[in-house]
Design a protein around this nucleic acid. Sequence first.
DNA 1: TTGCCACAAATTTTT
DNA 2: TTTGTGGCAA
Length: 839
Amino acid sequence: MTLHGQATYSPPDNLNEPQTEAVRHARGPLLVFAGAGSGKTRVIVYRIASLLAVHRVAPYRILAVTFTNKAAGEMKHRLTSLVGEDLTRDLWVGTFHSVCSRLLRRYADSAGLSKNFVIYDDSDQRSVVNRVLKELDLDEKRYPPRQVLSRIHHEKQEGRSPAEFEKRGFFDDAVAECFSRYEHHLKQANAVDFDDLLLHVLRLVEDEKSLAGEEIRHRFEHVLVDEFQDVNQVQYRLVRAFSKRTRNLCTVGDDDQSIYRWRGADVRVIRNFRRDYPDATVVKLEQNYRSTGHIVRSALGVIEPSSEREPKELWTDNKDGEPVLVVTADSEHDEAGWVVEHVRTLIEHGVSGRDIAVFYRVHAQSRVLEEVMRAERIPYQIIGGMRFFERAEVKDILSYLRVVSNPRSDVDLQRIINVPSRKIGQTTVDKLVQTANLAGTSLFDAIAPLCATSNLGTAAKKSLSAFRELLEDLMKEAQTAAPSELCEAVLERSGYQKMLEQEDTAESEARILNVNELIQSIVDYEEEARAEDQIPTLDGYLERVSLTSDADTIEEAPRVALMTVHAAKGLEFDTVFITGMEEDLFPFKAIDPKRGDDLEEERRLAYVAVTRARRQLVITHASRRAIFGQTRYGLPSRFLTDLPKGSYRNMATPAAALMGDRARTFANTFSGNSFGFARGKDWVHPQDRKPVSEPTSRAHEEQQSFLPKRVIEPSTHSEDRQQSFLPKRVSEPPPPSKTAVYVGRPNAKPEPLPQSRSTFAAARAARQVVQPGERYVERDSDVRGSSNMAIGGRVTHDIFGVGVVESVDPGPDPAVTVRFSGHGKKRIKSRFLRFIDVD
DNA sequence: TTGCCACAAATTTTT
DNA sequence: TTTGTGGCAA
């Protein structure tokens, strides 16, 4: 059965339309193209729920893989709410890495590892590469560690071992050598990198003769993959192998949102899925429930010029809403000022900061935005950037813990050997490395033999021995102490705590706080483990830390979120500002002309950015921008010219308006690439295109003397236009959206638009429209008619069908126990039930 | 061995 | 502009 292109309108909670019907019940290979905002997660969750409750598949036979812990957590959470804890507890829901790590712990022997292997992250990997380069006496100038590592990484993501290395030039001869030494060191240290987690499992599961592989192949009856456009070759082979026996492989993704090619993702996998599985059921979800008509059409306009994409027609039943606003700013400061000014206006008029997001292409753009936000006292949060577990002090302490758990981990040992300072300098460490290499042992094991030789000063011997005793001492402690106690012991006995306390600077104070937070995270882990009747172990904690990033947590605080477009994938906001929409910034143009540009991917990135907005999208660009210590003069991005006529309108900030003619002349005078970079072959510069934004030279009457201040493009219908930023109440039936639904009085008469000349007066009027309690709320808390939420009442459930209420648990999120015919008693949150009125 | 200064490099990032 | 790294002197 192949269904596609015939989506009909259906609210998100009606699961009877043919598409989702197929998704819920199809067997064999299944490919779901889920357009942006089409309710992808809902579809996957309902399929699993159906498999569990209707098809009676055992939970532990279902594997659902995602890319982030956050996505896995959400999926599990929604499933638990839908079908209850009993059915979901034993599901295999997790990231590729956590699933593989779990399997690998179980079959460590078969993979030639011991069970307490450590997981090396990015910086650990770099340390190994540095060591390898030194050993091979390779010049770091000619072989930058970063590039060497990324080359190795690339090979591993394609599933190749050092022996299978595909050399593509002289550089690779050296890299191949590094690769095999790198692998050697990891093995020596009983360590794996992130790629290895998958590779080891892949080798087992693809090995017909391996007993472990046989077991894993028989483990799962159903395999589901989320964000399928982001899988790399190894991940694809993995899920193929997992599902080889039953062929029940369900993949969900959107090739238009493939933005991680540089990270190994291979769009061809999703595009060629039908070639590998000719009998696959293909479903296309093309209705967008998230955004206004103008936004959906703009998104389509941006993505359509893309070649090679799977044909899809995103559409929506939602109202057109406000046109996309394209703003020309003079400089990055002007741009930031304009954006922040408008964020402020929104907040002053009752919009919560959490409904607003500001995107940029590169982190470097965030600084100016932050400065202005701070100056204007707008609460904001930066998503991404430095992560907690990457902070030096946190990594240091974790390295202590990891060495205690696995003394063979050389990278960790090297990290802490002289932190705090123990007078063990580079020379001594070099000698230690040499000794270890010669004897083929770990650094830790080389300490004693080195101290026994004579080519070391007495002082150095003494420090080294003391260091070794410290570690042995801690290892002994680890036998009996709980992880958190051990951590305290590390801080105490290593002198790390003292070092921080003595430093006594603002920075060291922050570090102490971070260390305390680390201890707290261990305590949290211990409590969680005990709650699940497990004994908290050091290894258990370390595993969790390695596979968790705190980037998974966006605070629910009412703060404006600032992030890169990449970080925005999977999120949605009422109002979105996309900044820096200029040629060579977005689409980004690498300074290094050797580096290939991927215009197609930039286009998809722009598509992702546009589709994050629910109600209002603002795109800004600046004529001039200081970035990376250079001033660039940028033309409006080519993507702006792809916005469909009628779905956007232009305006300029006062500064840009004043600069108007001059700026335009300047931009046009610049021949070719305005940044002076070499032009790529397929990188046609749109110099001949007229700028999308025609900066107006007439300043608006409201313009104040200080900048930045918004200028509304003079227009005969200025009243209407001035509403654009105001939290206008939706008065038609709520726009059905994946996670948000408008509650309040959906059938109320449309409010007359406030008629006023001044923006602020209009805003003030609009504020009255937004009543407390009428805000956007999570769809999950949309309590459906609860008139019959009493014992004996009849209810229906999307999966279990009709049932009778046996008991009620009131509260902010009420739950009820219901007896379903054919499914028995279930405890379910009432928001997942429809209560049937008996009158 | 440590600390300071000069210089280069500079997307996007999860696990 | 910022951040990280390498070389050199104390």
